[in-house]
Structure formats: structure tokens, C-alpha cells
Design a protein around this nucleic acid. Sequence first.
DNA 1: AAGCATGATTGACT
DNA 2: AGTCAATCATGCTT
Length: 379
Amino acid sequence: MGVTEGAPSSFDASTAGLILIPVTPCPGVPPRTAVWVLSIRGAQEEEPPDPQLMRLDNMLLAEGVSGPEKGGGSAAAAAAAAASGGGAGPDNSAEHSDYRAKLTQIRQIYHTELEKYEQACNEFTTHVMNLLREQSRTRPISPKEIERMVNIIHRKFSSIQMQLKQSTCEAVMILRSRFLDARRKRRNFNKQATEILNEYFYSHLSNPYPSEEAKEELAKKCAITVAQVSNWFGNKRIRYKKNIGKFQEEANMYAARTAVNAANASSHGSQANSPSTPNSAGSAGSFNMSNSGDLFMSVQSLNGDSYQGAQVGANVQSQVDTLRHVISQTGGYSEGLTANQMYSPQGINANGGWQDAPTPSSVTSPTEGPGSVHSDTSN
DNA sequence: AAGCATGATTGACT
DNA sequence: AGTCAATCATGCTT
């Protein structure tokens, strides 16, 4: 797993600046018991109250790596999950447990390594003590010298520990960042959500800019966040515009479907709660229809304060869009771009944007911004 | 594995 | 603040 890539896998004394130099054995000393002399690299050692070490310890404790076994890091994982946004996915808990599993893995590695280091430290210390004892036969060695040696060894090993802690922290950071980075855990929306969004998009092809309310409703229906709805529409608009031909088939499909739905709805009196009528709350002006083509202008002029309301308008608008599309399809165009021209009066303009898109030159209303396009009739 | 599809992010723009 | 355009990173299909 890439999570552990930063952690040292095995003890290596050389990383701590300890170099063991074999020395020609003294006469009388068995050849197998080589005599070693400690050579210390880096004379100055860091002092015990190291702020960096404290930070590392705190972090490891906070992440549940070095603390008590149970529930380690779950709070951090929960926080991460909450922060990741769009947490409506059903796989959220799965990812959560994935995060915890990996954290446990890191924790285990950390503890085994730590244990290994401690053991190695002890072994090495006794080894050095033995060597010094042996050397004391050939030269005088004061207890102070021994003590100094032991101190040096301990300090060296604690600096190894520091490295271990550092790389463990790094591993945790990597894990967290992967957990937090939404791009890394991107999941495609489910089919139903995509259909709802597409239905809305193609039934509002002339002005695919859902209002805040519409976005909220779509978000609720699709079990995603409003931000995700905005992302989806942003991506969809741009990609549709870039390659209309590619989306033609899809557009046909949804246009036909919407047409059928609309027909059914009108034959049944009222349409209950279609995604194409997100602003059914009663307030007028669900979608701006001022740019929606000649056919609709008359409707809009009727659509004042007292007219039947936005839902009717929105429904009609949907049908207008749909009909336009169907007409364009049956009109026998040869290329997708030809079909696009059918939309051009209220569709994508010469600059490559929808006419209602955030261009300050929008004809209808001087105060009309990109976001206000759909709500200008409220109040 | 390569190529395409798709959701998310970023910076610029109005 | 909302959008566009480019881009990233991942998922899916072939």
C-alpha cells in the first residue's frame, strides 16, 4: 500500500549516524569477536525538549497512532468525512472504514518498528558495553566514558525514533489528504440522478441555468449536494456546447421522453412533481422565459403577477424546448450543427454561450446577472 | 493498458 | 456570486 511508503521498513543504524568500524583484533581476542570502535557522526546532538518531537507526538496522539488502541483516529476520520462535502454517498461509511483500516495499518507498523528500535537500542548498548569491557583489558576505560557512550547511543536511537515518527506522520498526512481530496474519491452519480439532471438539462436546453431553488430540489432528488448540481450543470453546459453532435442522441432521447411526460401530464390535468418544474412553490418566475423564443413571449406576457403561476410557464417552456428539439430532429438536418441552428434564437449564440449566460449584454433586464436569470420575476 | 467519460477544482471574468 | 474554460484525477469500457 502506498500509505506506508514513507515509513522505514527496517532498522538501519547507519541512518542514525552510527558507523561501526571493524578494528584488527587484539592478540588474545578470538577472531570472530571483532572489536568495534564507535565513530560518531554529527557531534552536536539535539536537546531533549525538542518542539518538533513534541509536535510529532501530539499529532500521532491526535490521529490515534500512538495513543490507546481503541477508537484511534475515528474522530479525525469523521471530521474528514464531514469536510469532504457531498457526503450523501452511500459508500461513505465504507470509505470511512477503509480510512480506519489504513490508519490501523500505519499504527501497527509504527508500533512494531518502535519496538524493534527499542530492542535494537538495548542490544546495541549491551554490545557496546561488552566491547568496552573487553577493551578495558587493553586500555583503561573510565565509567564516565562508558556512561558517555551509552548516552550517545541513546540519543542516536531517539533520533531514529524521531525519524520513525516523522515518516509515520507523513504517512498519516498522505492518508488524510487522500481521504479528504474529493477528486481522488470521485464516484459517478447513479443512473437515476444522472437521468434527473439530464432531463432537466434537455428540457431547459434554451436556458440550462437552474435557479438556486431548482438546484436545491434537484440536489434533493438526486441525493447530491447543491454544489454538485452546480458542478454538473457547469460541466454539462460546457461539454454540450463543445460537442453538440456527440450529445445529439442523448438530447433526442430526453427530448422524446420529456415530450411524452408533458403530454401525459397535460392529459391528466396537472403534473405533480417533475424535475422540470422545480420551482413549484408557487412563486412566479421559476425560469426566465423572456429569451425563450417567440412562441413563448405571448405566454410570458400573460405570466404576470396574477397568472396561473410559474409551474404552468415552466411546463410550457419545457414543451417548447422539447418540441423545438423534436422538430429539429424530424426536420432532416444532416449535421448536428444544423440542429443547433434550430435552437439559435434562444440557444447558443455566436460567442459560444447561451444567450442567458452571464453576459452583461443580456437584453432583457439590465440588472440581470447569471444567477438572477431565473428569479427575476420574484417579488 | 489506453482512451474516453465524468465529477471536482482552479483561475479568470463579468 | 455565478459562470466559463482548462485541467486534474478517477472511473469505466474496450
